[in-house]
């Protein structure tokens, strides 16, 4: 097999290039069951990461959002329909200081039963599983990404 081209950091200066119109909306068109997800990317000291790029995808949905000065990002998605296991979104994290991007997943808080038997969540140490499940916060879901340290988000190797 041919060696894959190695990864390098997205750097701090992608904000003029990678965003696109309506990039935080995971699908074109209006959807009555769309949910807004808000979160913050935090570093090992809990400081906001203001130069990260988040991509959320699943099925026919794809959203991209650059974090702001507070490390905050948001996107709008529909809860995916899955044939087995619990519904989730693939979340990819790029940032200055990340020589390779990180893969994680966002699961839904109102899917307790399905989350309990999901085979990917089952691979994750129980004490860290909560980092993969969004929190209901009024009309929105909150999903923070902690790159390092206390409450570090679970990341996956593909």
């Amino acid at each position: 097999m041919t060696a894959p081209t190695p990864s390098q950091t997205v750097g701090p200066f992608f904000g003029f290039a990678l965003p696109f119109a309506n990039d935080a909306k995971a699908s074109a068109g209006e959807s009555p069951d769309a949910i807004r997800v808000e979160g913050q990317v935090l570093d090992g000291t809990g400081d906001p990461v203001g130069d990260a790029l988040i991509e959320a995808s699943q099925g026919d949905q794809f959203a991209r959002c650059r974090t702001d000065g507070e490390g905050a990002f948001h996107f709008t998605v529909r809860k995916p329909v899955v044939s087995n296991g619990a519904p989730y979104l693939n979340i990819t994290v790029f940032a200055r200081g990340l020589l390779r991007h990180l893969h994680t997943r966002m699961y839904f808080p109102d899917e307790d039963g399905a989350n309990r038997v999901d085979r990917v969540l089952a691979l994750v140490d129980e004490s860290r599983r909560h980092t993969l499940i969004a929190r209901r916060d009024g009309a929105i879901l909150r999903f923070d990404v902690r790159l390092q340290g206390e409450g570090e988000t679970v990341f996956f190797a593909l």
């Binding site: 060696a3 894959p4 990864s7 570093d43 000291t45 200081g97 390779r100 988000t153 679970v154 593909l158």
Partner: peptide, 25 residues
């Protein structure tokens, strides 16, 4: 040939590289 997450010569990796090993699927 992938780079590691933590590479102290590149200072920005120090507070951003995860400490936990990624969960291999």
């Amino acid at each position: 040939y992938e780079p590691p997450y933590l590479h102290p010569d590149y200072r920005s990796t120090e507070l951003r590289a995860p400490k936990h090993e990624p969960v291999r699927l």
